[in-house]
Design a protein around this nucleic acid. Sequence first.
DNA 1: GAAATCTAGTGGTCAGACCACAGCGGCCTA
DNA 2: TAGGCCGCTGTGGTCTGACCACTAGATTTC
Lengths: 209, 209
Amino acid sequence: MADRTSSSKIYLDVVESLRSMIEADSLIPGDKIPSERELSDRLNVGRSSVREALRALELLGLIETRRGEGTFIRDFQEHKLVELLGTFFLQDKKVQEDLAETKRLIEIDCLRIVAFFATAEEIKQLIVWVKDDEFLDDDFFLRIAILNRNRLLERIWRIVNSYARTSEPVLGNTKKEDYLALLTYLLERDEEKAIETYLIRIRNMSKDE
Amino acid sequence: MADRTSSSKIYLDVVESLRSMIEADSLIPGDKIPSERELSDRLNVGRSSVREALRALELLGLIETRRGEGTFIRDFQEHKLVELLGTFFLQDKKVQEDLAETKRLIEIDCLRIVAFFATAEEIKQLIVWVKDDEFLDDDFFLRIAILNRNRLLERIWRIVNSYARTSEPVLGNTKKEDYLALLTYLLERDEEKAIETYLIRIRNMSKDE
DNA sequence: GAAATCTAGTGGTCAGACCACAGCGGCCTA
DNA sequence: TAGGCCGCTGTGGTCTGACCACTAGATTTC
């Protein structure tokens, strides 16, 4: 691999090589990739360079390494990069507002989808849960997000929520009745009312401060 | 730093140490962080471990290194992780559907916001642009996303769009009239009509296949 | 056949060695 | 004195070789 013309940093070339390798071999989450030493040989680079690439991908959550076993492609549904970025810098005021707004938008989108596609059974289960358990607002919307069946949107919600949470602690605990009202509207497939209920709740929460 | 009780991997400890260091010293983008050798000394870990941490953060776009100069905190508005993730694996069928759906939802959210908050002037500029220039569908919604003023939502759109694009090339070039109709509704603050126009366009695009 | 053991392979880490490059200061020359 | 040259020092970039810790599978032993 002397033909390293593109980037100046070897570890980036290794990342790229891995990418093509995965693509070429159609590797999927759970599959094993060659060992560090073998990659080092095959690509004609030092093992340390290979490791830099692997560690970077690991922090991104794209691969997973198990000592004594090897390195594996990961189910990248959950990136740990979330927590990482989340705990890094988020002092900016504007960012906070954007976070809150985006979170609201996504939650509303989720509500819409759930109102449309969730089965009555699923919603009823949620109702039971609300009645029986203690929970935080986050938990509630996590379940809504999961119900929406769109894994990506759920993931985005998780990310945004995680960001948002690191900034200001969850305030205002909505009353159970409100959640139940919302769920009831969902059960009746009344999208409009459900969202309205949601918005009222938002308004109450900000009043609480 | 023998008190490395938490994680088993040193490079993760280094990442954490850097995080606290940045926080403690209130470092901001552009600031220089200690050299690899100094970190290696201060934290009592090998330089290679320090490098693994730094390379990971670099791939995340959080820091920037300049040979002969040092390592600097980066303006993290644009993470290169986007392109990276985008080009990685996305063969799964379900993921594709989720992508498309999420993209639609976000675009609709953006339209809603724009219908509410964008100035007439901004929308008129867009109209002029649509009339005068050639562009792709992506370009159009990129501008919408930017208009919405929510940097986070814009970024999410960019990410989702970038994912989506790597999978299937943008098909169907909507006619200019459709874009203009949509913009006109936005100008009139007619959220409903605008979204309706948007949805019709979606339907046409999938018919084109 | 089951349990204990050994062994090869893998990731985790370190130390030390070069190289390439940027910045700075001192020195020499015009 | 002004300008440019040169080399020193510090920094990131890379490689090598050496251990260690751990896993899984083969081997041996009972």
